[in-house]
Design a protein around this nucleic acid. Structure first.
Lengths: 257, 257
DNA sequence: CGAACAATTGAATCAGGTCAATAGTAGTGG
DNA sequence: CCACTACTATTGACCTGATTCAATTGTTCG
């Protein structure tokens, strides 16, 4: 059961994303190592689907690197990407609503720990650090979903896209002298499904932002934001996200003045 | 600290709602009594606001009866009702995103337990029942928010309203021979804010549903659904909600065949 | 009874969705 | 290395569902 990371998946386009992701972490609480010794380590590839439940048991997943999306499809309805999960985040079988098609899909190459939730509970009872992590992870997730609900329900499409970009910059971005760089972790379709837009509209808005110089494409699927503050100004959720996820060091957060 | 329910708040329009709410409960796990002995019991009145944090401490609220709404207002944005909380549900200070105006408002008269979250954690470490309740309550909430995200992001306005009515019927409805009865727990404005609609649109759709005989107004703010199955058929989330919250006994859930 | 407010409803507008045509971008096999 | 195919993304023209605005009706409460 102990960690045996003899996996070589520095494959494809994975490595860089991983570095970027793990590097900056004023993330509230670290994942207790105790959980690692009970986990099965999974290596994910972009697009790979993970079974949400392991042989009927309630299962927990902890993202170590990369990004995981939870896809939900209600009967007779379009798909919704319910959540993006970044390193440190926790997902449980019970988080997905019953009677809906739910899939956990890796958006980027990365590492995921899988645990039986029963084992996590047992651990939490004896190890206060684990309990704190669980409570903290869950509260952060709910706060995020709350922001996301406000985004879906009350923002117009430009604001929605700006909010996503801020979120990605905060959670997967690297700060370079020229600005913040991050990868779009999914296809236009997936991103549109996360924001409750359709892909055409999303594409239009990205073009609009690009021509307004809010960002530029370093290369395919990679985005460079020169002026983070200008981007943040377009998202009503920016300040909440920064408070929740922490701003990458050196960013214009403080320079908001 | 022990429960001292010497409160007479059978006031106003409260009583009936309360009965309806508490009666049918195939609700997954009951709130452990152990929590009650550490709780401050609050009596709520419709419209009353509760402070989300108690003197800076992380605070937990458990709804015993009535309905609580979490209002969120992102800067420069319209208000969003992030969640409706029914009996058995748990709310924590940490669930509200930082940097946003967050308020906990009672939609109906009822009873709420307030606890320091630290005390809850301590209790959970020694009492497995409490831990189970917490995990369960949190998972249910996230599953609900996931459904809500899909509702906000992917359903049209009729489906949104149908989904809300199903949710209310399941969680606060009473089954009478003529059908299911429940109260609208908030003003049109609040309900619209929950669904990401504007009040005019909501009103139009309610009228449309009424003239399609999907429901009738027994009295002001009270709704009678004769044919629950017909209503459920309009909401893609109906089956998920029924699986999550349990259908009121005698309802056409089983008769879906 | 009348004032303040909540809900309904119609008409005009617009943001975003739909459809369709085009242009990029892998990936594959000669 | 270069076609060739299968996708994914972009963009324009058009259309529709939802919002906005405003006028009206209904409800609550002093």
């Amino acid at each position: 059961m102990a960690l045996s990371l003899k996996i070589e998946d520095t494959a494809q386009a994975g490595s860089r994303a991983v570095y970027g992701v793990t590097k900056h972490g004023p993330a509230p609480i670290d994942v207790p190592a105790a959980l690692g010794s009970h986990a099965t380590v999974l290596r994910t590839r972009r697009g790979q689907a993970l079974a949400l439940a392991q042989q009927g048991d309630e299962t927990a997943f902890i993202v170590r690197s990369g990004v995981l999306m939870l896809h939900i499809t209600l009967p007779d309805s379009a798909r919704q990407v319910a959540a993006l999960n970044f390193p440190g985040d926790l997902i449980r079988t019970g988080f997905a609503p019953p009677c809906a098609k739910a899939t956990l899909v890796a958006a980027a190459a990365g590492e995921v720990w899988r645990l039986r939730f029963g084992a996590v509970e047992t651990l939490a009872a004896s190890d206060l650090g684990v309990m704190r992590y669980l409570d903290e992870a869950v509260a952060r997730r709910i706060a995020h979903q709350t922001i996301h609900a406000a985004t879906l329900g009350r923002l117009d499409s430009e604001q929605k896209v700006a909010t996503l970009l801020v979120e990605l910059a905060l959670r997967t971005g690297r700060c370079l002298p020229q600005g913040v760089v991050f990868d779009l972790p999914a296809s236009r379709k997936d991103i549109a499904d996360y924001l409750g837009l359709n892909p055409d509209t999303l594409s239009r808005i990205m073009s609009r932002f690009r021509s307004a110089s809010l960002f530029s494409h370093a290369e395919r699927n990679r985005i460079l934001v020169r002026d983070f503050a200008a981007l943040a100004a377009r998202s009503p959720a920016a300040s909440s996200l920064m408070a929740l996820d922490g701003a990458p060091p050196g960013l214009s957060t403080d320079a908001s003045a």
